[in-house]
Design a protein around this nucleic acid. Structure first.
Lengths: 165, 165
DNA sequence: TGCTATCCTATGGGATATCATGGAATTTTA
DNA sequence: TAAAATTCCATGATATCCCATAGGATAGCA
């Protein structure tokens, strides 16, 4: 089975910026790091810029590598490639869990998404997100409203089965 | 895992032109220098001419070799090859980190991109860039605007998924 | 089915190493 | 030999490591 990021949880951020990554997510990060071995700590990547400025997004090494590989296929110096690299490479950073399963969010990262002393982790399948709790709630509410306003044939749940073949 | 240049950071440039290269980038430079050994300092290449006159671009030895190889495939004496060699080979220079992880930017290099006493390092996957901070901000803003003005089918993120297969 | 031992998780504090940066000393070079 | 470049120390700030604790969950056992 390939594990995916599932669930949401709230964690304290201490004075040094340290936060526990949910235990369930650690298993996914371990599986997604080709260099991980029992006894060590997995690496992964946090993307902080780009399309969404309101949360951080965590990717396993293997899933970000897929993206990196696709980008490398684009012609060097092309506008598309530069743009993607700016969003995916420049505005991101390698991270490593410590032995107790924590990471440290630098001042810059915390500031970027308005985090003070608590953070919400939300599983999103191939990636996870880190939110300031209030912003997260707003995001959920907004999503709810926009979902309710969809017409029948815009409903993504229904579109899902049409993809199937 | 093959590390890539990720993240961005601001560094002071002192009177002698010395700047710290971000610690994370040093690891990539070390990995990318076939002659590197523990205890020594990695070599790499800075390209200052060519396509973009507004920033410097740093390549690991192994990634500049890839580019060199591509250029060698072009017909000798062709205009294209001549041009690329001028930009990539002529307008570039070998560099070596010192023991504290710094390089020195000569007056010429600083002048080229308008740097005075601060420099931004930006990871771009297989290479990194060095910018004068204000110019960098302008670059980011311009990128943002042009991204927002893209039509659906011009969105490089969406194109990425089409490459897949 | 209640008790206890064990493990894992979340969190905190202090010690230590690394990083970014500045200045002095020394070598090179024109 | 003066200017420029390189090497060698120095230091505060930051990040990393190491240890400690408390609560929850699980498992084994009587």
């Amino acid at each position: 089975m390939i594990r995916r990021f599932r669930g949401e949880s709230l964690h304290k951020v201490d004075a040094k910026g340290r936060v526990s990554v949910p235990a369930a997510f650690r298993r996914v990060l371990e599986e997604g790091d080709p260099d991980f071995s029992r006894g060590s700590s997995p690496n992964f990547v946090i993307v902080y810029g780009g399309v969404r400025g309101d949360c951080l997004e965590g990717y396993t090494i293997s899933s970000i590598s897929k993206v990196d590989k696709l980008i490398s296929k684009l012609p060097r110096f092309s506008k598309d490639r530069e743009m993607l690299e700016r969003f995916i490479n420049t505005q991101s950073t390698y991270m490593q869990l410590d032995e107790t399963g924590r990471i440290v969010l630098s001042y810059r990262l915390k500031e970027k998404i308005g985090i003070r002393d608590e953070a919400i982790f939300a599983g999103m399948g191939e990636k996870f997100q880190i939110w300031e709790p209030k912003n997260y709630q707003n995001e959920l509410n907004a999503l709810d409203t926009s979902f309710k306003n969809l017409s029948e044939d815009e409903n993504p749940f229904l579109k899902l089965d049409q993809l199937q073949d």
